[in-house]
Design a protein around this nucleic acid. Structure first.
Length: 581
DNA sequence: TGAAGGCGAGGAAGGCTGCG
DNA sequence: CGCAGCCTTCCTCGCCTTCA
């Protein structure tokens, strides 16, 4: 095989590589340490996987709203699922539910929104509404629909309307046009005591006496509010709108906190602190520009980086199954893995080159007309979006956002900050220990040492709660649904995260930044040869480098033949070709 | 402070289903 | 009836939180 035409061209030409190897073996390279950055993963900066975060948040919302397996409650998604013949997930922790759950929950969400439109227009059935629009000759202006949509959002998809549904006493303060349509009072619930056995009863939620609200309506509003966020995220990702994605991720901190997903809560808090207090603008841009990727270059085809990795993993696993190899194989790591996208496209290119039109390998989704008909009929018959005094049918969804804010206020955020402070203290100790042994030139000459860190600087972590441990501390969300709008509530909650910036305490995060700033490590700073345009360094271990050097020296000393300039990768291809031929 | 229980970017095995 | 592929269930383990 002609090495020049090989897609996996070696990273360095022979002379520059030899020089580099000699320097490294001789210890001239400042980054040559007993354990390089790559080996000890010193400079790894973990970022959250957006697709997995989406899957987990969807699972959390689903678990909150599916309710008991067998129930008549129209606000529980179990009822909707059985009505429209969707499967109820067996395990709400499984990311494998992502697509079926997305399909079913978005269908429920759409059907409920359509039911709200029906009530807004004042139709008795959805068939009447459909007929009305079919026979309409001139559609009204966009602003007309926008106005109605705003009213629907205020009435049926907002946090304030939940409290309106549960505590209808202060309805007078709400404008008439966003008050619920009122139906007949709900008869005292009798099914529980008469028809359900005690085993089933424990899954059912029971209201306190004198309950005058409408739990079913409140549940449905809560579902629409929480899943609206998720859908917004699902729209923002394919559009590649990382700013919008990040705005929703900030709200998800509270949803995760309320849903008991402590790992995601802390990971998102870490990301928030990273972007607000620790990272430079360049680092932030680097993360934001790579969180979503578009390998096709087409509009609306952006996907999260972790989903792309999952796609590649699938192909790599297939490959390994057939070749009986392992993920540690050098050829897999250095040749196949970095170029997996091109190998995947190779077959399609072959087909195109011989004039075969590319065909999709998947079926299109079947239509959901029957499902929508059934759901709309059920919601209408059960008067889901009409206020009925005293209605509660055994299912009560949790306000995850509210619960999350409360959880963070009552200690979770303090614990998180304490942990971060401990980490910084540890880095401080390590820094003290390292100082005598460190090379004087290592940081001062570094190209990264002039790195500028973004402001504002960090809040005083260590003292923040020590001096203000009571409930009147300056860290106070002051979360009041009855008086604030959704955005105000969210802003208040985010303000709580921000804390105060103007304290004059020792800034420990400056230390964290300086201790963990990227140094030009052996493998992390590949350089380009200006003449050949090739990479001058690879991810090569010390042992491999030494072996390489010995081989190079051996070749040079033995016969002095014309140097081929083959790298280990090229040699692999050479030998494998020879074996085959 | 220790025990108990929950959580999860998992994995294996066995059952189920559809197809030839 | 056998086979392949899919799906579900059960088990595992390390880490973390909660509670007594």
């Amino acid at each position: 095989m002609n090495s020049a035409g090989h897609p996996c061209r070696p990273a360095a030409d022979h002379s520059s590589r030899k020089k580099l190897v000699k320097e490294r073996i001789a210890g001239k390279d400042a980054a040559l340490t007993p354990e390089s950055d790559f080996n000890i993963l010193h400079n790894v900066l973990p970022t959250i996987g957006i697709w997995h975060m989406q899957a987990t948040s969807q699972n959390t919302i689903a678990e909150n709203h599916y309710g008991p397996i067998a129930t008549n409650d129209p606000s529980s998604l179990s009822r909707s699922a059985s009505c429209a013949n969707f499967k109820r997930p067996a395990n709400f922790k499984d990311c494998g539910n992502y697509y079926p759950l997305h399909r079913s929950m978005s269908t429920f969400w759409n059907a409920q929104i359509l039911d709200c439109w029906r009530l807004e227009f004042g139709f008795t059935t959805h068939e009447e509404m459909l007929k009305y629009f079919e026979t309409m000759e001139n559609l009204p202006e966009f602003d007309y629909f926008m106005d109605k949509a705003t009213r629907i959002t205020s009435r049926w998809v907002s946090l304030e309307s939940i409290s309106q549904a549960l505590c209808p006493g202060n309805v007078e303060s709400i404008p008439m046009e966003i008050q619920f349509p009122v139906g007949d009072p709900f008869p005292l619930y009798h099914n529980l005591s008469q028809e359900q056995n005690t085993e089933t009863l424990k899954d059912f939620f029971q209201e306190h006496e004198n309950f005058t609200g409408d739990r079913v309506l409140a549940n449905s509003i809560l579902f629409k509010w929480e899943y609206s966020l998720w859908l917004e995220l699902a729209y923002a990702v394919p559009e590649g709108d990382i700013g919008r994605v990040w705005e929703i991720m900030k709200i998800l901190i509270f949803i995760f906190a309320g849903g008991g997903n402590t790992n995601y809560r802390d990971l998102l808090l870490e990301m928030y602190c990273l972007f607000c207090y620790e990272s430079s603008k360049d680092l932030k841009d680097a993360i934001w520009n790579n969180w979503l990727v578009n390998v096709t270059g087409e509009l609306g085809k952006w996907i999260p980086d972790d989903l792309l990795q999952e796609h590649y993993n699938r192909w790599l696993e297939e490959l390994l199954k057939k070749s009986n190899g392992s993920f540690d194989d050098s050829f897999l790591r250095k040749v196949l893995s970095p170029n997996v996208e091109f190998f995947l496209r190779l077959k399609e290119e072959f087909e195109t080159s011989v004039g075969l039109h590319h065909r999709s390998k998947s079926h299109t989704s079947p239509h959901l007309r029957a499902e929508y008909q059934q759901l709309l009929t059920m919601y209408q018959e059960e008067k889901l979006h009409i206020f009925r005094k005293g209605r509660s049918m055994g299912h009560s969804a949790t306000d995850l956002f509210d619960k999350g804010v409360l959880q963070l206020r009552t200690g979770a955020l303090k614990n998180f900050l304490d942990k971060q402070t401990d980490y910084v203290e540890t880095l401080k100790d390590m820094d003290q220990l390292r100082k005598p042994a460190s090379l004087p030139s290592s940081s001062s000459n570094s190209s990264v040492s002039t790195h500028e860190f973004s402001l504002p600087m960090s809040p005083p972590l260590s003292s923040h709660f020590e001096s203000n441990s009571n409930s009147d501390s300056n860290f106070d969300f002051d979360f009041d649904k009855n008086s604030d709008s959704d955005s105000d509530s969210i802003n208040h909650a985010m303000d709580g995260l921000n804390g105060h910036h103007d304290d004059e305490e020792t800034d420990l995060l400056m230390l964290k930044q300086s201790s963990t700033r990227l140094l030009p490590g052996l493998e992390l700073m590949p350089t380009i040869d200006p003449n050949s345009g090739r990479l001058l360094s690879e991810w090569t271990s010390e042992e491999e480098l030494e072996m390489l050097y010995n081989e190079e020296m051996g070749k040079e000393d033995s016969d002095g033949e014309v140097e081929k300039g083959l790298s280990d990768v090229e040699e692999y291809w050479e030998t494998s070709d020879n074996e085959k031929g």
